[in-house]
């Protein structure tokens, strides 16, 4: 609880544990409600997506980030501005594909999984899948179609959580005027 002291000043910040526990309760309920892990993953992604398409406006309104000119810049903004602003962490950007259309976000201390141990028989569950949905939703609103997947998960014994983002295409028909 000592961490709280340095956050008290900003009214927009909440106790991280409240957030982690709320998310935990949500996932636990989904695991109860759905029979297989795939369905839970899908639900989490959908929820994340719905958050993402709204979150992006908040992010743009509050940060002075301009339009990104390439995917590398996008990766930078996601890790240094986006994750920093909403989760208080800065994932490492790495594992670029040679074409520059694919990269990984490496998260060492995932705030979502702070107190979590996966129960037996849920090896297919991507506990943090809501992040994938949120990233996809955000990027879609700035006209980027991106595939987002969790490829390594600390909860499953990997040393790090790795989220892989693959650029698919620019959503040309959704481009606002002046951007083409």
């Amino acid at each position: 609880m000592s961490r709280q002291s340095n956050r008290a000043g900003d009214p927009r910040k909440v106790n991280g544990e409240l957030f982690t526990l709320t998310y935990g309760a949500l996932v636990a309920q989904l695991v109860k409600d759905y029979e297989n892990d795939e369905d839970v993953n899908r639900q989490l992604e959908k929820m994340g997506y719905n958050m993402g398409i709204r979150l992006i406006e908040d992010f743009l309104a509050r940060s002075n980030v301009g339009r990104c000119h390439d995917f590398r810049e996008t990766a930078d903004v996601i890790s240094k501005a986006g994750f920093k602003m909403y989760l208080g962490i800065t994932p490492v950007v790495s594992n670029w594909s040679p074409a520059g259309d694919e990269f990984s976000l490496l998260i060492e201390n995932n705030p979502l999984t702070e107190f979590v141990e996966l129960p037996e028989g849920h090896n297919a569950l991507n506990y943090s899948n809501i992040l994938c949905g949120a990233l996809k939703g955000c990027l879609e609103m700035v006209q980027m179609d991106v595939d987002v997947r969790i490829v390594q998960d600390q909860l499953k014994g990997d040393s790090i959580t790795e989220i892989r983002l693959k650029f698919i295409k620019r959503l040309e028909d959704a481009l606002p005027a002046g951007e083409d």
């Binding site: 406006e57 743009l60 609103m141 700035v142 481009l175 606002p176 005027a177 002046g178």
Partner: peptide
């Protein structure tokens, strides 16, 4: 005065 956000609003 008009301001268009990056998302087109």
């Amino acid at each position: 005065h008009c301001f268009q956000s990056m998302t087109g609003i």
